[in-house]
């Protein structure tokens, strides 16, 4: 019996509070079954359906990198019923995971190129999987320059602060951290991500840019990237949609004939331009 809806059981090993408002938490989980742990292989950009039994399921992008062996990480913003239940869980609790689902960032075609990551808020979560994949010692040499522009509304809304510090220290990354509005303790950059993008002004030559964040940010980021000379094919983003099955059957996440759960969530802007404006 092949039951595509049957999740595997995973244990929450660690819960990290990400934001000051405590509305984003990162969950590090491991599959209870060793065999599943071996079998579950994924690529940066893919997502999983996470189950909280008695509550339901939700699609969450995998924020860990496949280079981080033995566990998965998911960063979850408290939004609806499922994510709230997940936020109420404790280390040691068991959840269900099925997947990985969807396509992934075009890692192979990014080799030898300059990579520009542009993230906003919790939108860094799917990018982080690819960033850590690229920064992994075994992979770093296959990619050229890495630029990361990351921002959030306020310092308290920045996620993965524990990792941002490491990135800031690395010499092989151009890292730009910004907030829309700082607070008393903030000595860093202030400004919207699209504005910072123009200040950094990365060259489109031999470059690919990967962006994820709130829809309004993505809109202006894309506008600015086009101004900088990036072609639509050089702009990669990842979409969110209401999903249920994760396997292209239940019918709700399509944009035109593309299913975000199966044909996405990763699309180039060139692909999006060919799709109806219905997302």
């Amino acid at each position: 019996m092949r039951n595509p809806y049957l999740p595997d059981i995973a244990r929450i090993e660690k819960i990290i509070q990400e934001t000051a408002a405590n509305d984003v938490k990162t969950f590090r989980v491991t599959f209870v079954d060793d065999e599943v742990r071996e079998r579950f292989s994924y690529r940066p950009g893919q997502f999983s359906e996470i189950s909280v039994f008695g509550v339901g399921e939700a699609p969450i992008s995998i924020t860990s990198s496949p280079t981080q062996k033995g566990y998965l990480e998911f960063s979850v913003k408290k939004m609806g019923v499922l994510t709230t239940a997940l936020h109420h869980s404790a280390e040691g609790d068991l959840i269900g995971i099925r997947g990985p689902y969807g396509n992934w960032f075009p890692v192979e075609s990014m080799e030898g190129k300059n990579l520009v990551f542009i993230g906003g808020g919790i939108g860094l979560a799917p990018l982080r999987s690819l960033i850590n994949y690229v920064l992994d010692d075994e992979n770093r040499g296959r990619f050229n320059d890495v630029t990361i522009i990351y921002g959030a509304r306020s310092p308290g809304d920045l996620v993965f602060k524990w990792e941002l510090e490491k990135w800031e220290k690395r010499r092989d990354i151009d890292f730009y951290l910004t907030v829309d509005k700082g607070d008393a303790g903030w000595s860093g950059r202030e400004g919207f991500v699209p504005t910072v993008l123009m200040e950094v002004s990365p060259s489109p030559e031999n470059a690919v840019t990967i962006t994820c964040g709130p829809p309004i940010m993505i809109k202006f980021v894309i506008q600015n990237l086009l101004k900088l000379g990036f072609t639509p094919a050089q702009i990669v983003t990842t979409l969110e949609m209401r999903m249920k099955c994760g396997v292209g059957k239940c019918g709700r996440c399509n944009i035109g004939s593309k299913y975000v759960c199966k044909d996405g969530p990763v699309f180039t802007y060139e692909e999006l331009q060919r799709m109806p404006q219905e997302y």
Partner: peptide, 10 residues
């Protein structure tokens, strides 16, 4: 919530 706390119970 989710099991016995020792990886069993679900």
């Amino acid at each position: 919530f989710g099991g016995n706390g020792d990886g069993t119970g679900v």
